[in-house]
Amino acid sequence: MSDFGFHLAFWSLAAMTLGGASMIIISRNLIHAVIWLVMSMLGIAGLYLTLSADFIAVVQVLIYVGAISVLMLFAIMLTPRAERDNSQNIKTGGPAALVVLLVMISTLWVAIDTDWGAVREAALTDQARLIGESLIKHYILPFEIGAVLLTAALVGAIALARQDDEDAAVHAASLQAELDGEGSVDPVNVVDPPIASEASDTEAAS
């Protein structure tokens, strides 16, 4: 690519990524924060393209922008409006900023100072095929372990989020108790809510 085009692309994408990330810190509303996150993710996908890693760029868009951000939005939707506050914790903000500054200075110094012996060779072509083959040939074990990990995460997330009836009964009872102000209810002897007892006999029609 011509130098001018490359420069334009790199600097605009860098601005987009860092701008998005910093806006996350500033924005008050959590949903705004997620949308700024999506913008910086797209910026990073563009940066991958400038590094001619097109398979990774497309995977990044597919997974981060397509799935993870929507997952976060779902999580935010499931918690009520009162929890959508994206504000910083003022007390711990100060020391945190200090630590981050320290980390930043050290990493930047290392990044700029050391001589990485960078060499600019031709980029890989047809990366999708190469990555696929290497995943199956050299990295077959991590590939399988990754599969197991993903399934475990899937099952775990569902098990955690799912709410079976017994939990619901405990939860509803504790809410009701708080309403009536009798203090907390120990979950052991929770009486199930009386189910409508008059089972209407419908043998007539069917």
């Binding site: 709410q163 619901a168 509803a172």
Partner: peptide, 28 residues
């Protein structure tokens, strides 16, 4: 409850008000 659970009350968006009578299973 807060006192009992020892939670400091500083977030200005704390859950005020009682839970409505018609709550669904998971409180939303």
């Amino acid at each position: 409850d807060d006192a009992r659970l020892g939670i400091q009350e500083d977030s200005h968006l704390a859950m005020q008000g009682t839970i409505e009578a018609l709550t669904t299973g998971d409180g939303s």
